[in-house]
Design a protein around this nucleic acid. Structure first.
Length: 940
RNA sequence: GCGGAAGUGGCGGAAUUGGUAGACGCGCGGGAUUUAGGUUCCCGUGCCUUCGGGCGUAGGGGUUCAAGUCCCCUCUUCCGCACCA
């Protein structure tokens, strides 16, 4: 049985024990709920409340990354950020701000569906149960959320608006000139008026309906595309690039992923690449996250260059157009579309045998190499990254700048998905090209003079151009410009920017996701349902299991579970031209869809006319100045969403901004990454995990049942047998102790190990606070209405001042340290003066809200302290009466002198010199430095 | 390889702008209460010391009256990206 303080021994009846804490906590949680203490007023609509104490006050939108309600429940690491934002929100509320803080659930997606499949229950049932469990666990922690604003992405009332936003994206196109999204009708109007030419130049009026639809569809921000996508047979669904690990496997499940040509929904996020990149500068985000987004977007500037061949021309992208004179061969990706037409019937005269791969004809060589390249997994490709492979395809191209004859190779080090899938190889200035040239004995022409003593191979640094005709002598930057100018003047190429970012694959073969508000007619082209037909509800299905395959079965075919709901798929609708038969889209949206806009729904959760009322959005998220991007005032969450959720959400928000539905151009103005709570795990000699809570430490070694075990450090997880739950901690110490401990462990942004032993320190601290105010034997308030002594009063005001600064800066650990200091000082006093007790309780309340409410009541106040003014330090009392100066002699502290705070420099100097007289040993000080209020430094 | 962050007692961590290194907590040592253990409370706790003092913020060098903090070099750890042309 678990030992708690009250299970044994004699203790005073009103000591702050876990049992008392639990009783207090339950009582106050119930009161907050009954009183609606944390209801937050909106400027307009159903949630407006002119009588609210914070109505019309300065607002603060505080947001947590909402959790995914897994079946395992929360462990002590999960609520770290939630507690942090709660403490901050409570502080802001007490300093006069109107704080919006609530919590929703991101509940669609693979894990919920897999859990449902495992347990044989419908995902709606398991999801609802998991959400209920999470709510219970979070409620136990006493989080000051507005419960009316909580949403789940799986609520029909929520996902109807996810579908609505999808329709807006579908019915929009990106105007490159205006650099923003516009409604699709405006594009149609441009075609109709002839202002915009059709692709083949025929007048719009002469095109058939289907031809027009195809053209329009090709411009939409959400579009169907037949392209190579990531197909994961083990999961039975396609996945976005962002969901693939570096090893080329699925992030979830770690199954192999194959490139397959499939018809799937895409989102044109690449249209926003530049703005997503540029606007990072406006965001108050941690630099590492911004850098990760920059890398992911991967903007490169350079030029396209066209190389003529006998069978059409090859366009390459290069960031180094200045090295064109050094190009000695071309390389195409094996899958490049021009390869087949370039390959001649026979090897050209004089082809080196090492170039042919031993094949009798170029055709055979190409076939063999393609097969070889396709057989390699991404893991193998990376492992062999240094070994360059490839084959000559028997054809040549011409270098446009000097007419040189360049052999064309295919090689898997050139990727079909980046740039044009073709490169000009400049071995002198690119190490990969150098490595390839070594293997195939290709010539090297240096076009940049390497520095004296350079002993490397390819030289990628700056220097004067050589062997480059009209570029000779120019540095790299100048030569690039000059070459681009030449290419454009002579029609051989143009300035270009490319991105690593790909369009977002937006469909999944899953049951548990938002259905698309899309149907197909007999043409097979998509038709958006009108808004009035939303929501498109998920059909009830007995068999919602995804069709999965052998993880290695690359030839398997995706099958959407919804396609099995025949009655749902086939519908007769009147879309304006009479009732007709249509087929519904059977894919569902990815998990990220719901999290792309949930913060907006918190603002106006019950609005049935709009996803958010524009006035409410402006109040909570609108820009404060013309340069401001607006958005959530503080968004707290883990670093793991750096390129997934945080990029997708920015993209959707920008589309909504372009279309005029929101006033903010970014969703999250300020981002804060909280650290993770990690834990030790222990393995025995066979490598099996043993229960971490039964391991004993002796002299730095670890023992389980007397046998030594090995310690490792990492995640908390069931399989590692090291999970500690908030429930256990609340049971053994109470929620307030748990909260104080989590906040005092270290800075919020730093990861740290969980140590259950150490939580007792926070427990003792709260006990001391309690004991200072409540008589442990009678339960009565023992605070006296006498003034505090001067020393205590000054300490109090220093603490108020310091704690305020710490709260503003989210430095909760140091704020708590200061509160402990104050408490320890009060503990020493024979009586606790009210003028100290009350501010102490108020300052403690963001961290230990239940206890603080209880003490506030015992101090004679009515109602909640949630809106009571936070203590303010008296500047008069912050000035010390006397100052202790350390006195250094030659940099070493030799004495301390106490002088009145108003002493002048000469007095300080005199007193200091007297104090260190013995250390001076009669020598005359060469220099005496007095730093007012700080220290004295003597040099001899 | 490229990019980013960080190295402070046995442990988690403090130290606005260069100005008393180690706040606060855990652990540990001692004491009080208790039949005992546990709980709770009080005192002590960087290392070495010949008790004068000396040494200490990953290591080495520098600037300064003064460096955890600034500069240079080296090492280590963590995170992200990785044949991106």
């Amino acid at each position: 049985m678990t030992e708690t303080a009250e299970t044994t021994g004699e203790i005073p009846p009103f000591r702050y024990t876990a049992a008392l804490a639990r009783e207090i906590e339950r009582r106050w949680q119930q009161r907050w709920e009954e009183w609606g203490t944390f209801h937050t007023p909106n400027p307009t609509g159903e949630l407006a409340d002119p009588n609210h104490p914070r109505s019309g006050a300065e607002k603060f939108f505080l947001l947590d990354m909402f959790p995914y309600p897994s079946g395992a429940g929360l462990h002590v690491g999960h609520p770290l950020g939630f507690i942090g934002t709660d403490c901050y929100g409570r502080y802001l509320r007490m300093t006069g701000r109107n704080v919006l803080h609530t919590m929703g659930f991101d509940a669609f997606g693979l894990p919920a569906e897999q859990y449902a499949v495992q347990t044989g229950q419908h995902p709606r049932i398991t999801t609802e149960r998991n959400i209920a469990r999470y709510r219970e666990q979070l409620r136990m922690l006493g989080l000051a959320h507005d419960p009316r604003r909580s949403v789940s992405t799986t609520d029909v009332d929520y996902y109807r608006w996810t579908q609505w936003i999808f329709l807006k994206i579908f019915n929009a196109w990106y105007d490159e000139k205006a650099q923003r999204a516009r409604p699709i009708e405006e594009l149609i109007a441009e075609f109709e008026s002839g202002q915009r030419p059709t692709p083949d130049g025929r007048p719009w009026a002469e095109l058939s309906d289907v031809e027009r639809r195809r053209i329009i569809d090709s411009h939409r921000l959400a579009y169907l595309s037949e392209a190579p996508v990531n197909w994961c047979p083990g999961l039975g669904t396609v996945l976005a690039n962002e969901e693939i690990t570096a090893e080329g496997r699925s992030e979830r499940g770690n199954f192999p992923v194959f490139k397959r040509n499939l018809r799937q929904w895409m989102m044109r996020i690449t249209a926003y690449a530049d703005r997503l990149l540029a606007d990072l500068d406006k965001l108050d985000w941690p630099e590492p996250i911004k850098q990760m987004q920059r890398n992911w977007i991967g903007r490169s500037t350079g030029a396209y260059i066209t190389f003529p061949t006998d069978a059409g021309s090859i366009r390459v992208f290069t960031t180094r157009p200045d090295t064109l004179f050094g190009a000695t061969y071309l390389v195409l990706a094996p899958e490049h579309e021009l390869v087949d037409s370039l390959v001649p019937a026979a090897w050209p005269e004089g082809t080196k045998s090492s170039w042919t791969g031993g094949h009798a004809s170029p055709r055979e060589a190409v076939e063999a190499y393609r097969k070889f390249a396709a057989s390699k997994t991404d893991v193998e490709r990376q492992a062999e990254a240094k070994e360059k492979t490839g084959v000559f395809i028997g054809a040549y191209a011409t270098n446009p700048v000097n007419g040189a004859r360049l052999p064309i190779f295919i090689a898997d080090y050139v990727l079909v998905g980046y740039g044009t899938g073709a490169i000009m190889a400049v071995p002198g200035e690119d190490q990969r090209d150098w490595d390839f040239a070594e293997v195939f004995d290709l010539p090297v022409i240096r076009t940049v003079q390497p520095p004296e003593g350079f002993d490397g191979k390819a030289y990628t640094g700056d220097g004067p151009a050589i062997n480059s005709g009209f570029l000779d002598g120019l540095n790299v930057a100048e030569a690039k410009e000059r070459m681009i100018q030449w290419l454009e003047e002579n029609g051989h190429g143009s300035r270009a920017t490319t991105y690593r970012l790909r369009d977002w694959l937006f469909s999944r073969q899953r049951y548990w996701g938002e259905p698309f508000p899309i149907v197909y007619d007999e043409t097979g082209l998509p038709i958006a349902l009108p808004e009035e037909m939303l929501p498109v509800e998920l059909p009830e299905m007995d068999d919602f299991t995804p069709k999965t395959y052998d993880p290695e079965d690359a030839d398997s075919v995706p099958e959407a579970p919804l396609s099995r709901a025949r009655d749902w798929v086939e519908v007769v609708l009147d879309l304006g031209d009479g009732p007709k038969r249509y087929y519904r889209e059977t894919n569902t949206m990815p998990q990220w869809a719901g999290s792309c806009w949930y913060e907006l729904r918190y603002l106006d959760p019950n609005n049935s006319k709009a996803f958010v009322d524009r006035a409410n959005e402006e109040y909570w998220m609108g820009p404060r100045t013309p340069d401001d991007c607006g958005g959530v005032d503080l968004y707290v969450g883990g670093v793991e969403h750096a390129v997934l959720h945080l990029l997708y959400a920015r993209f959707w928000h920008k589309v909504l901004y372009d279309l005029g539905y929101v006033s903010s151009s970014e969703p999250f103005r300020r981002l804060f990454n909280q650290g993770y709570i990690q834990a030790y795990a222990y393995t025995d000699s066979r490598g099996a995990y043993v229960p971490a809570n039964e391991v004993e430490e002796r002299d730095g070694r670890f023992y389980y049942q007397g046998i030594e075990v090995k310690r490792e450090y990492g995640k908390m997880g069931k399989s590692l047998k090291n999970v500690v739950t908030p429930d256990e901690m609340c049971e053994q110490y109470g929620a307030d102790t748990f909260r104080v401990y989590e906040m005092s462990m270290g800075p919020l942004e730093v990861s740290r190990p969980w140590d259950t032993r150490a939580i007792v320190g926070s427990y003792r601290f709260l006990q001391r606070v309690w004991r200072a105010i409540v008589d442990e034997h009678t339960g009565e308030c023992r605070v006296v209405d006498k003034p505090a002594d001067d020393r205590t009063r000054r300490l109090l005001h220093r603490v108020i001042d310091g704690v305020r600064a710490d709260m503003e800066g989210l430095r909760f650990n140091t704020a708590i340290a200061k509160l402990i200091e104050l408490t320890n000082a009060v503990t020493q006093l024979p009586e606790t003066p009210r003028e100290v007790a009350e501010p102490l309780v108020l300052m403690l309340s963001p961290f230990a809200p239940h206890m603080a409410e209880e003490l506030w009541e015992k101090l004679g106040h009515q109602g909640s302290l949630a809106y009571v003014d936070y203590p303010v330090a008296d500047p008069e009392l912050l000035r010390a009466e006397s100052v202790t100066y350390p006195v250094q002699v030659n940099g070493k502290v030799r004495a301390r002198v106490e002088v009145p705070a108003d002493a002048d420099e000469a007095q300080v100097r005199e007193k200091a010199l007297a104090a260190v007289a013995t250390h001076l040993a009669g020598r005359e000080p060469r220099k005496v430095i007095v730093v007012p209020g700080r220290m004295v430094s003597v040099v001899v």
